[in-house]
């Protein structure tokens, strides 16, 4: 971490410039409209930073931004989305050292272990980026209906996805829930790990400096129990990933989500973020559209 530099003899005179950790909404970095923040500590209990404590209003603003970005992002060609998302991986790689520091501090890992986690997160992003122009070829297809019709089914994005990010895996887990939603064309409001939010803020800086349009991914930091219910109940949110929701809260969030029949991805009993994820999360936020057309002279 930057603080460590201050203790080395050569740079003892220099005081590090610290970063303000803010929200990421619509491509901008606002503080919480509530003016609140909360203390984020490392795994060892030492102070790391004050993070913005997002409010109900921040969550609603984020949904507005995600909805605003949906039309263009979902209409982009799969090739274009793939290019843009692969670019994110390139920029992630360039920030590797910073992520290793932040993930190490947040998750209490030494540099080597944190490095492996960051590598896996970058590779996970690349894996999902590559799916953009292949999802339809694997999940879609023609249907041999018994009549003179050409009939085919294609996947289409559900819309705005609210994501409760995993609480423990601050970067690999986060990437593993954000990437599958955006690669399919959805836009996302993600509520970062409550205790370990800093890698998420840095990820938002990566997104802001890649070619991802503002609003495609919006990042909130704060209290999961405070903000998640508003997202779950929001009538302009189409889907909900409960990966990081507390087991005791899942049922209430699902009940809230039922008001507009959000597609809900329940948390797995045991999430192994290091394992290859499969298509489950990709599929979770895709609709199937079937088109019929007559065949004849």
């Amino acid at each position: 971490m930057a603080e460590q530099n201050a203790t080395s003899p050569n740079t003892a005179a220099r005081i590090a410039v610290r970063k303000t950790y803010k929200l990421y909404i619509g491509g901008a970095f606002p503080r919480s409209e509530s003016g609140r923040s909360y203390e984020v500590t490392a795994a060892d209990g030492s102070f790391l930073a004050n993070a913005a404590l997002a409010s109900r209003k921040d969550a609603r603003d984020a949904v507005v931004a995600a909805r605003g970005a949906f039309a263009k992002w979902s209409a982009a060609t799969a090739y274009n989305r793939g290019q843009v998302l692969y670019r994110v991986a390139e920029v992630l790689e360039g920030r590797r050292a910073q992520f290793v520091d932040e993930v190490g501090a947040a998750e209490g890992l030494d540099a080597r272990a944190a490095g492996l986690v960051v590598d896996a997160a970058i590779d996970r992003w690349v894996w999902y980026a590559g799916w953009s122009d292949k999802i339809a070829q694997v999940l879609g297809g023609t249907n041999p209906v018994a009549g003179p019709y050409f009939d085919f089914s294609i996947p289409e994005p559900s819309g705005v996805v609210a994501v409760v990010a995993p609480q423990h895996s601050s970067l690999l887990g986060l990437v593993s829930v954000v990437a599958p939603a955006v690669v399919g064309g959805c836009t996302v409001v993600v509520l970062a790990s409550e205790e370990r939010p800093l890698p998420a803020v840095t990820l938002s800086e990566v997104l802001a400096t890649s070619d991802v349009p503002g609003g495609v991914v919006n990042v909130l930091t704060g209290r999961t129990a405070e903000v998640a219910p508003w997202l779950a109940a929001h009538m302009d949110v189409n889907a909900l990933d409960l990966a990081g929701a507390a087991p005791a809260d899942v049922q209430a969030l699902e009940v809230a989500a039922a008001d507009n029949l959000k597609r809900v991805r329940r948390p797995d009993p045991v999430e192994d973020w290091a394992a290859e994820p499969g298509l489950d999360r990709l599929r979770a936020f895709l609709e199937t559209k079937t088109v019929w057309h007559p065949v004849g002279i």
Binding site: Y79, Y86, G130, W131, V138
Partner: peptide
């Protein structure tokens, strides 16, 4: 270039290709 980009993405997904 697009052809390389597309196939780059397949390299780790061949088990899904049928």
């Amino acid at each position: 270039a697009a052809h390389f980009f597309y196939h780059a993405g397949w390299a780790d997904k061949l088990s899904y290709a049928g």
